[in-house]
Structures are given as structure tokens and as C-alpha cells.
């Protein structure tokens, strides 16, 4: 009887462990609804979709083990392929480099297409050469934009991308930063060509470096992001610390390779300063401070 209970307990434990591994408490996608907007929002990590020959791109992606198919313009990204060819499996731990292993320990899950290793080995030369562009396709898709001659003719839409490589960090509060980015087609292609063999096994990440004065600059935090994301909220929980970020990919063997580098942000403080000026030593208001702390923050009644 006790043996039966023990088995049930162990099973429960395993189930809970499995659940916690699937949680990503540190990061969250922005909850914005891109469907209802007039504005166009990019759906990939900075490759202009119209610049791709989709058949060829899909073929190359499959060969090189890119786990998710690229969406065509106006098409939603599907989670899995209808024929099940994108069914995923867990990577074995002993396949991983040291760096990925650490992430693995931290509970991130790395998934990939079956057989990607083998295929790469079998057809090493296949996906060479520049990615084919389709000039006719661009021509068709490019809308003719007339200059508004009159204010009543104005029809503005915001561009998906500006053709600039850019990673920007904004400090939101003492805990969180917001990152947004754009990678140009050229830059993406260059990195893709350079690291072709391992591309399919690599994952996009944002690496944040703590550059607070007095702190070793090598301290960093890695955040796994979605392949098709162009912005991310990151919980650093380090008030008064300074950070900059690099957007790049984590490769199984080469480790982290950065594509873009951001500005430096300083997270705001969330508590009293420990620095005390002798000349202006704080008076006994700090004991009172605990009582008023809950009042700090909100403002207008209609906010």
C-alpha cells in the first residue's frame, strides 16, 4: 500500500517539475493585438518577407533544420506542419555545448526538427549561394504611393521596417526593460550564410550585460525569444543597475554570437538610497516611511 502511495507521489512530483519547466517567468510577449490594427507589424525577425523566394527558402530552411516555417505575407504562422514533419523532439543533454547546457539546467527547452544533424552532415554543400530574391514579386507587391496633393487625400500606414539594424532598450521600471529591434535582410543573410551549418540548432536570444560601475561587465543574463518576435519585455529585477543588450543566437558549439548591440539603460531605484551624506544626515523620517510607502505611486482618479 505505502509503495503504491510513494509511486503516486513520485508521479505527481515529476508532473509538477515538468510544469515548472514549461513556465517562463522571466519573459513575456507583449499582449498587443496586431490583428485589429491598420498598422503593419513585422512577423519575422527582420527578413523582408516579400524578398524571399518562398519555395526555395522553405527548402533551405528544412535542410538546415529551421524549426518553424516562415509565414508568407498575410499568412499566419502555423504551429506545426499538416503532415507532421515538424514534430519535434527533445535534444539530448550530451549533444549540447557547455553554454547551452547551462540554459538547459535553468529549465529552458530546446526543440528541433528530427534528423537535422544527419541531414546537415549528408548535404553540407546544398544550401550555398545567396538567397534567391524575386524581383517580380516585389514589383507586384509594391504599392504605388501618390503624394497627397491635399490633406483630404492623406492615407498613411506605418512601414513594417525601416531598413536599419537596430536594437533599443527602454527601462520601464525598477524591474523591467523593454527591447525592440529590427534586423535588415542583408544583416540576417550575412549571419545566416556565416553560420549556416548550425543555424537550425541555434536559438535567438537577447543577452543582457550588467555594466553598473563597480560590477564586472561579464555578468550577463540570457533571454530566449521567439524566432518571429521583434520586441520583448524582460524582467531583470535589478534596480539602479545599468544594462546594455546584444541580440544574437546561441549556437550549440560556437556559443553566443551577437548581431546587434543596444544602448545602455539604467533601471530606476525602487527604494531609499544607501548612500548617506554626512553633512545632510537623514533625520528620523525613515521610520515613518514604512507607514507611507503604500501610498506612493498612483495619481489621478481616472488613471
Amino acid at each position: 500500500m505505502w509503495f503504491f502511495f510513494a509511486v503516486v507521489l513520485i508521479l505527481l512530483g515529476v508532473a509538477m517539475l515538468y510544469r515548472t519547466r514549461h513556465r517562463y517567468p522571466e519573459t513575456s510577449r507583449s499582449g498587443k493585438d496586431t490583428e485589429s490594427t491598420e498598422m503593419e507589424v513585422s512577423t519575422d525577425i527582420g527578413v523582408p518577407l516579400e524578398a524571399l523566394d518562398h519555395q526555395k527558402a522553405a527548402q533551405i530552411d528544412r535542410l538546415s533544420g529551421v524549426a518553424r516555417p516562415r509565414a508568407r505575407p498575410g499568412e499566419r504562422l502555423r504551429e506545426s506542419h499538416p503532415d507532421g514533419s515538424l514534430a519535434t523532439r527533445r535534444l539530448r543533454k550530451d549533444n549540447l555545448s557547455k553554454e547551452v547546457e547551462l540554459v538547459w539546467e535553468a529549465g529552458e527547452i530546446i526543440e528541433l526538427q528530427p534528423g537535422a544533424w544527419a541531414r546537415l552532415k549528408d548535404f553540407p554543400d546544398e544550401p550555398r549561394g545567396p538567397r534567391a530574391q524575386a524581383p517580380e514579386e516585389i514589383k507586384v507587391q509594391k504599392r504605388r504611393v501618390l503624394s497627397p496633393r491635399d490633406i483630404r487625400d492623406e492615407r498613411y500606414t506605418l512601414p513594417k521596417r525601416y531598413g536599419v539594424d537596430r536594437l533599443v532598450l527602454l527601462a520601464r521600471d525598477p524591474g523591467w526593460v523593454y527591447a525592440y529591434w529590427e534586423i535588415t535582410h542583408e544583416k540576417y543573410q550575412e549571419m545566416y550564410q556565416k553560420h549556416l551549418k548550425e543555424w537550425g540548432l541555434s536559438r535567438p536570444i537577447i543577452r543582457l550585460y550588467d555594466v553598473t560601475p563597480g560590477i564586472d561587465g561579464s555578468v550577463h543574463v540570457d533571454v530566449f525569444i521567439n524566432e518571429d518576435a521583434d520586441n520583448w519585455y524582460i524582467n531583470l529585477g535589478k534596480p539602479r543597475h545599468a544594462f546594455y543588450a546584444e541580440l544574437g543566437r546561441l549556437f550549440p558549439e560556437k556559443g553566443f554570437i551577437g548581431f546587434l548591440r543596444s544602448n545602455v539603460v539604467v533601471l530606476p531605484p525602487d527604494d531609499l538610497s544607501d548612500e548617506i551624506s554626512e553633512e545632510w544626515a537623514p533625520l528620523d523620517w525613515t521610520s515613518f516611511y514604512g507607514k507611507i510607502r503604500w501610498k506612493l505611486g498612483p495619481s489621478s482618479p481616472w488613471m
Partner: peptide, 16 residues
């Protein structure tokens, strides 16, 4: 500023 703009100043303000 909002209250904590001054309260959390560095160094800690003498008069809150």
C-alpha cells in the same frame, strides 16, 4: 516630482 522621485534620491535626502 512624484514623492519617491525625491525620497529615493541619492544620497538619501535629509528631510524626506
Amino acid at each position: 516630482l512624484e514623492t519617491h522621485g525625491v525620497l529615493y534620491a541619492t544620497p538619501r535626502p535629509r528631510f524626506g
